[in-house]
Amino acid sequence: MPMSMSARCSTDRPGGCKPPGQLGRRFLMSLVLLMEQALNGLQFGIMLFLMAAGLTLIFGVMGLINLAHGSLYMVGAFAAAAVAGWSGSFLLALVASLAAAALAGTLIELLVIRRLYDRGHLDQVLATFALILIFSESTRWVFGSFPLYLQVPAALAGPITLPGGIQYPVYRLLIIAVGLAVAAGLFLLISRTRIGIRIRAGENDREMIAALGVDISRLYTLVFALGAALAGLAGALVGAIQSVQVGMGEPVLILALVVIVIGGIGSIKGALVGALLVGLTDTLGGFLLPVLFGAFLEPSAAASVGSALASMLIYILMAGVLIFRPTGLYGAGT
């Protein structure tokens, strides 16, 4: 709340409550705070992109809406926490998260998901909802209901001073870097490699590429495992900031769904733009709205109205995008 107080001070009676020099310093401080929040929003958006990229690929190529994607995120986080606890190595934990999520993804693709490609969306929603129940409850059964903790390695634990005097945790910067690297890699994979050509061909006409001799079901398994691995990596990276627990996947899943719907389902570019938009809107909205309302409401009312509205903001954004562009920003049309 110090932000809303200072905003009130400066709008109500400029210079009346504090000497000007201090007011200037306060303004600078809130600018630094704003930059920090913007970086947090960027980091959040990048994480969402790792989730959304897999979801949107799976939808674009196979036409499947996969609610169990959040469970793969959870599997990645639990695998990382377990391996880190056993070996003490963070790098090994990340490898384990990729491997475990890819394995779980391959397994459910072979057993369940491939029966759903020809079904309607209702069946897909229900079957993957059932997978959520199975994944969540079996994880609770194995690991218990208490959260696990994944430690950030000591070398990355501290803050770093950025130009402009902003103190920011190294680990969060690393997440941004890893996410951007994955995004670049994904774009290269899709646009430059043979697998990428097949994936794009599969989006356009699956019968034709099957007729040309591509093993379509192997391609599908591969795409699904790739999406799963990205979700698992996101789970492990975020697991080190938050706690690792059952049910951690569903809020992220819903945000990732919002992202791909805003971006246009099937478009990786749309997923990136949507993820950054959602990440920044959510973080900056939660920070700025109470301040904004503080300009004309009393502090307690401003805080409650502001935070209520901020928590709804990305859904309002999504509904707005869909009402004006029913297939999302980069959607090809249904």
């Binding site: 928590s311 999504m318 509904a319 869909l322 249904t334």
Partner: peptide, 25 residues
């Protein structure tokens, strides 16, 4: 105004709006 999977998602989004509104109100 939307259909198919977009309809599923927009109804989900409206649900989340109400959910978060009641939590923070």
């Amino acid at each position: 105004r939307t259909s198919g999977v977009y309809f599923i998602m927009i109804t989900l989004a409206f649900g989340q709006m109400f959910f978060f509104f009641t939590i923070s109100w």
